[in-house]
């Protein structure tokens, strides 16, 4: 489902004498449908950078990032937008939403984007929020005012609302209490059973063992000639 080959990334800092900083080189990674692969490596090794490149948020310097039939490293913005809408989900660590939009609509948003009716989208959004124990009285409020844990659960509900065939999870269980942590892990396992290909970052080693089939140390993709 996802196949990364010979991927590299550099940052050019024009405002600091055009310093070129290589951050990744020769990255290779394959994730099959129904498989969950954990990215490991110390802080700053490039786990998030790799995830962002797969999502099209960072540009690749060279190499290929196949998600389904699309090479994200070469795709046009329009193709990436379609990919994000239908194929590739992303649960980031932080919730970024338009202030004032009710939680229920924030979660229903990805469903509306693929053409689900408003009524059905809201119903499914509600089911996810309920499962993640976000009290119903909060559904009509904007999540911008919520606590960190609540925001994280809204973020997860939003990420899982549409059944993407491929997903990127950045610390999905961080800042969750044990009960909700367990629910999220359960959701990941269910997604795997549906055949979803998942790449995740989990600092929580126990969670990693519970849901991941393999671990890939991103440190192996570090550039050989550091700047």
């Amino acid at each position: 489902m996802m196949e990364i080959s010979n991927l590299s990334k550099t940052f050019t800092l024009h405002n600091q004498d055009a310093a070129v900083i290589p951050v990744m080189e020769g990255a290779n990674l394959t994730v099959a449908a129904g498989e969950c692969v954990a990215l490991t490596g110390e802080s700053g090794a490039g786990k998030s950078t790799l995830m962002r490149m797969i999502y099209g948020n960072y540009l690749a310097a060279s190499g290929h990032i196949m998600v389904g039939d699309l090479d994200v490293a070469r795709a046009s913005p329009r193709e990436i937008l379609t990919l994000r809408r239908h194929v590739l989900g992303y649960v980031s660590q932080f919730l970024r939403v338009v202030p004032r939009v009710p939680t229920l609509d924030v979660v229903a948003d990805p469903l509306l984007a693929v053409g689900t009716s408003r009524q059905e989208a809201r119903a499914r959004a509600g089911a996810f929020l309920e499962r993640l124990n976000v009290p119903q009285r909060l559904w009509q409020l904007s999540p911008t005012t919520f606590s960190g844990g609540e925001q994280q659960r809204v973020n997860i509900a939003r990420g899982f609302a549409h059944a993407y065939p491929a997903m990127l999870l950045d610390e999905p269980t961080a800042s969750l209490d044990p009960v909700n942590r367990e629910t999220v892990l359960q959701m990941i396992l269910e997604a795997k059973q549906r055949g979803v290909a998942i790449i995740g970052i989990f600092h929580d080693a126990q969670a990693r063992r519970q849901v991941c089939d393999r671990e890939v140390d991103v440190g192996a993709f570090a550039p050989r000639v550091p700047a």
Partner: peptide
């Protein structure tokens, strides 16, 4: 892409 241009 908007987020790509702003983030990278």
């Amino acid at each position: 892409l908007t987020d790509q241009v702003l983030d990278d």
